[in-house]
Design a protein around this nucleic acid. Structure first.
Lengths: 208, 208
DNA sequence: ACGTGATTATTCATGTTTGACTATCGCGTA
DNA sequence: TACGCGATAGTCAAACATGAATAATCACGT
């Protein structure tokens, strides 16, 4: 499971009704292409696939001037539920080898309450601490099994080391969230009540 | 680019001539399916694709008893070069969002010399330290750009935190490598001079 | 007035990944 | 000896991802 679906649902949710090119431009302006699959084909096919599954619906296909026709989308009720489901999954579940999941999840964490995001991050820290205790025994077991290459022990150590890094980030962020940093759902004065969100105005980032 | 190609090249290199089912069973016994794409289709298609590119060649297609015919492969000269190229790439290059690359690389690091692996890990630590210094300025810049969502700053922090975890692992492993842990190419007494490598004897791990 | 290059908006051939499915053999057990 | 389960060995349709290509428009300089 890639983070692309969550990114598409989340971005359409913010800007709807919106067309594929806009969604992609916005995500590139977040530099999300560094960690997610955002080639044109992935975005356009992802939108069509979400529409096929009933999570989005085509609003229309407008042709402005002589430019290519553009298909605009918006979320359905199911799409809103799917968005929240994927968002919670990405924040509450520790996906050991899918770094893009948490990246995508954090991008839309503000769609949940501060209370829930704090609880999710606390849960992640606990899961990672538990994983560290378990890894000790898994590594011991590897030495025992005669046919297991000993290099596999380092896979556990490296996997855990990266999780430890993530936990350090989470602890640090938790402090800042408790101190009031960032805006979350249900709080007054959203940052774009006066200034709507929107990233680069061009694909090559020559904004301005 | 996924780690599957390197895993297939490296595994065929050890056991050649070898057929797809054996390769897959071996990789599953390393628990590599936790972090790499090793579904049947990925393995069999990956082997065919490597053969198409001239990195492997079919040795034959034997039918033993009434079982399905099995196609056995071995590396070509180009395949050996491609293996070493991908291996070096995976060990020397820091791929920020592809944790499977280093996992796969370490699995076959013993095919290089201890000296080179130590140099590669030292280089990784330096790259990660440089990345940490750069991240400070990238995060500053985000606050400046009006259209960039502030959540993006956490993407830098999280990405760097995970790299910091990796660097901690690398420093720790470097100490152990300098102390002589693990066997590497060119050193006497390889661990399977008497005991050939080989993982679980069955797919479900009921080795005995 | 005209060329140049970036932007808009998307398609599509190709390649990779998924995981359900086929079909046979061998072994333990009731 | 009949039964069933797991191991063996792989195929295939469908889904997902890649990135070059298309083709019109617009901004800008000369």
């Amino acid at each position: 499971m890639s983070a692309t679906r969550l990114l598409l649902l989340g971005t359409v949710r913010i800007f709807q009704p919106v067309h594929g090119y806009f969604v992609r431009r916005e995500l590139l302006s977040w530099q999300a292409d560094a960690w997610a699959n955002l080639n044109p084909g992935s975005v356009y096919n992802g939108l069509r696939s979400l529409a096929r599954d009933g999570f989005m619906e085509e609003v229309g296909t407008e042709t402005e001037g002589g430019r290519p026709a553009r298909t605009t989308y918006r979320l359905t009720g199911d799409g809103e539920n799917e968005f929240l489901r994927l968002l919670r999954e990405s924040l509450w579940m520790v996906a050991r080898f899918e770094p893009d999941e948490l990246m995508a999840g954090w991008s839309f964490a503000w769609a949940l309450t501060r209370k829930e995001v704090i609880a999710a991050l606390e849960s992640r820290v606990e899961q990672i601490e538990a994983s560290a205790r378990a890894a000790v025994f898994a590594i011991e077991a590897i030495a025992t099994q005669p046919d297991m290459p000993d290099t596999v022990a380092e896979h556990y150590r490296l996997g855990q080391a990266r999780l430890d890094g993530e936990a350090a980030w989470a602890r640090q962020l938790l402090e800042r969230l408790r101190a009031g940093e960032y805006w979350f759902d249900g709080e007054p004065d959203p940052p774009w009540s006066s200034q709507p969100p929107g990233g680069a105005r061009t694909l090559h980032g020559t904004a301005g």
